[in-house]
């Protein structure tokens, strides 16, 4: 299952691929153009983690 998304680098606009589970695991994703490292701020772990839990529950219920 593909959980990769793309975001424009805030420094140079180059697309950065990232994985939401990687973000939740504390991983940093680097821009291949300017080497800026992107990560989820510690304040947002709660809301993103909670939303992903609900999202997984929704997918599971759709698959039943």
């Amino acid at each position: 299952m593909n959980t990769t998304s793309i975001i424009a680098c805030p420094a140079c606009g180059n697309p950065i691929s990232f994985d939401i589970y990687g973000l939740l695991a504390g991983k940093r994703f680097c821009c291949s153009h300017c080497s800026a490292a992107l990560a989820l701020s510690s304040e947002s772990y709660g809301v993103v983690g909670n939303t992903m839990q609900k999202f997984e529950a929704l997918k599971a219920s759709a698959g039943r």
Partner: peptide, 10 residues
């Protein structure tokens, strides 16, 4: 929209 905070280091 619900906003989340991201950080980037350069």
């Amino acid at each position: 929209p619900v906003l989340i905070k991201m950080e980037y280091t350069k």
